Computed example of a mutant assay.
Amino acid sequence: MTEPESAAQLADNIARQLQLLVQHLRHSPADHTAQALRRVLDTDNGALWGMTAVLVTGAQRTKEQADLGALPQEVPRALGRAASELNALGLDLDEEAAALGQAVRASTPARPAPPPASCDVRKRHHR
């Protein structure tokens, strides 16, 4: 069985994945970019909200260390401020995320109806 990733390794992997996403976005068609951004901004499972939760958790955990004197008190405060600002930005972008969803739906062409089957084809299906 393999060892579970440490928090630092997981953070490194997430950073690499975000860099990969940036590269994809630079070369993706507009509708794919809109779809990806809508997912990044998703209020339940998006990366922006995930990063906010990471900062909140970091602020809470570093507060414990700061209370013990292992870190300056400014560290958890700065993380808390960053989490609050990121949360506010996420809330501001919520409307735009909905607009991105609409743009994706509007840019997706409707599938044309298949042509009607000829009489010969219909007869074969009934036999």
Rank of each mutant, 00 (worst) to 15 (best):
A98C: 08
G80S: 03
L93G: 00
A53Q: 10
A97C: 06
D67A: 09
A53V: 04
A59I: 00
A113W: 05
D92M: 01
L55E: 10
D120N: 10
S118I: 05
K63T: 00
R81N: 12
E95V: 06
K63G: 07
A53E: 10
E74L: 07
P109W: 03
L89T: 08
P109R: 01
A82Y: 07
L86T: 05
L91Y: 13
A78C: 00
A78L: 13
T57R: 15
L89I: 08
A53L: 10
P109C: 00
G80Y: 00
L71G: 00
P76M: 09
R105K: 07
K63H: 13
E64A: 03
L86F: 10
C119I: 12
T62G: 12
V54T: 12
Q102F: 06
G90W: 05
S84L: 13
A59R: 06
S118F: 05
A103D: 03
V104Q: 08
A113L: 15
T108P: 00
R61K: 06
K63M: 01
A103E: 08
R77N: 03
A83C: 05
C119T: 11
L71C: 05
M51E: 10
A110C: 14
V75R: 07
P76A: 03
L86H: 02
R111D: 01
A98M: 14
A98P: 01
E95G: 04
S107I: 10
T62C: 05
A82E: 14
E85D: 07
A78N: 09
V56G: 11
E96D: 08
K63Y: 11
Q60S: 09
A83L: 14
A82P: 15
A110K: 14
S84G: 09
C119W: 15
V54S: 01
D67N: 07
V75P: 12
V104F: 13
A117F: 04
Q65S: 09
A103S: 11
A97F: 12
A83G: 05
L86E: 02
P114T: 02
L86R: 04
A88R: 11
G101A: 10
A97V: 02
Q60G: 06
E85Q: 01
L100S: 06
A83V: 12
Q60L: 13
L55P: 02
L55S: 12
E96Y: 14
L93Y: 07
L71E: 09
L91I: 08
R81F: 01
T108M: 07
V54A: 12
R77G: 01
V104N: 01
D94S: 14
A83T: 04
P112V: 09
G80R: 10
P112T: 11
L71Q: 00
P109H: 14
G101M: 02
L79N: 06
P116S: 13
T62P: 05
G80M: 15
T108H: 13
R77Q: 06
Q102G: 10
P115G: 09
A98S: 11
Q65Y: 00
R81W: 04
R81D: 15
A98Q: 14
L68I: 00
A66W: 00
V104L: 13
D92W: 02
P114L: 13
N87I: 04
L89V: 08
G101T: 08
D92G: 03
Q102R: 05
Q102H: 11
Q102V: 03
L93E: 14
Q60H: 06
T57D: 14
Q60V: 11
R111C: 05
G58N: 12
Q60Y: 15
P112R: 06
G50H: 08
E96I: 06
L93I: 05
P115R: 11
D67H: 02
M51L: 09
L100I: 02
R61F: 13
